[in-house]
């Protein structure tokens, strides 16, 4: 597989959760992911930014087939994995990996670190015992948990949050996956270790040429981690593009609001009010018609309420889904 080749293609992916209110009532659907399309190149790292309830986590887990997709296609290394049966899925499980938000919950508390990292190797029947142990030690030293023998024999409750998250990273990378999805990997860590963990992840991603999807609500950290940005809102991607481009020149009113809402440490902040739209993200059972942001949008037009916005290419790369930028 050569550089620049696609590793993952997601086409019009949808994931609806069925919600039954009563035994005899008609089921309703939570449209958590509602038509997402994007591609990921081999060795590329992208950021998926959205607020809670935007569907970003569901999107990540649906791509990893932890949820059954409702509609659409997931193509990984030219193979359609959308509806792979559980036996053929083992291959996909080996090639992909997940890093979760909560380091305290992500590891089984009753197993030693060595065994926790060894588990994926055992499941995929890789190597014999000594070979596996070597790979466990390699993984631990890759996440800089040294001396590795010490850490290997410890139990999760003996480690700090930052160290636990590095164990989780070691476990996620021990199978040498091609695609890693990290869902808020540092948001539960303390500020002082957040950057350390993120830097570590970035270095591993670059040296091992891993294709990476970084899911976060924290726009400020994305540019330290990836090149391309996708902004998600109410189950859809509203804007994408080069991170610096999008932050400097956001085109979608939602992206603009998001950027305005985020403070940088500055003593002037306290003297001014932030110009952000009121309201909160819509409920996903009955999302707004037309553009999903229209009820909160300061520039709303009649058409926004009725018709879904068109996908408009940005100047350099990426797109924006907004009627304001529609070419007439």
């Amino acid at each position: 597989m050569s550089e620049g080749e696609m590793i993952l293609t997601v086409e019009d992916l949808r994931k609806f959760f069925e919600l039954r209110k009563g035994l005899f009532s008609k089921p309703v659907y939570v449209k958590a992911v509602d038509g997402v399309t994007f591609t990921l190149k081999k060795g590329e790292s992208i950021s998926l930014v959205g607020e809670s309830g935007s569907g970003k986590t569901t999107l990540g887990k649906t791509i990893l087939r932890l949820y059954e997709p409702t509609k659409g296609k997931i193509i990984f290394k030219d193979k359609d994995v959308t509806h792979l049966s559980s036996e053929s899925l083992m291959w996909y499980r080996r090639e992909t990996s997940l890093i979760q938000q909560d380091p305290y919950g992500a590891l089984p508390s009753f197993l030693p670190i060595r065994r926790i990292i060894e588990e994926p190797l055992i499941i995929h029947k890789i190597g014999d015992k000594s070979e596996r142990l070597k790979r466990v030690y390699d993984a631990l030293s890759a996440v800089r948990l040294t001396p590795v023998e010490d850490f290997a024999s410890k139990y999760p409750h003996m480690l700090s949050g930052g160290q636990l998250q590095r164990v989780a990273i070691a476990r996620a990378l021990v199978l040498e996956p091609e695609l890693v999805i990290a869902d808020e990997p540092v948001s539960m860590l303390d500020a002082s270790v957040r950057i350390e963990t993120l830097t570590l992840l970035r270095n591993l991603q670059e040296t091992r040429k891993i294709s990476f999807i970084y899911i976060t609500h924290d726009l400020a950290t994305t540019k330290y981690f990836s090149e391309r940005l996708f902004i998600m809102y109410a189950g859809k991607i509203l804007e994408s593009g080069n991170i610096r481009d999008v932050i400097m020149k956001p085109l979608h009113p939602y992206t603009q609001a998001l950027i305005k809402a985020i403070p940088d440490p500055d003593p002037e902040n306290r003297k001014v009010l932030r110009d952000v739209p009121p309201g909160e993200p819509p409920n996903l059972i009955h999302p707004p018609s037309g553009c999903r942001f229209h009820p909160r949008c300061p520039y709303v037009m009649d058409i926004c309420r009725v018709e879904e916005p068109p996908i408009v290419e940005r100047e350099k790369e990426g797109f924006v889904a907004c009627w304001l930028h529609a070419k007439h």
Binding site: E51, S52, A261, P263, V276, P277, P278
Partner: peptide, 9 residues
């Protein structure tokens, strides 16, 4: 959320 947070601030 960040926008709601900004509103509360």
């Amino acid at each position: 959320d960040v926008i709601t947070q900004a509103n509360i601030m």
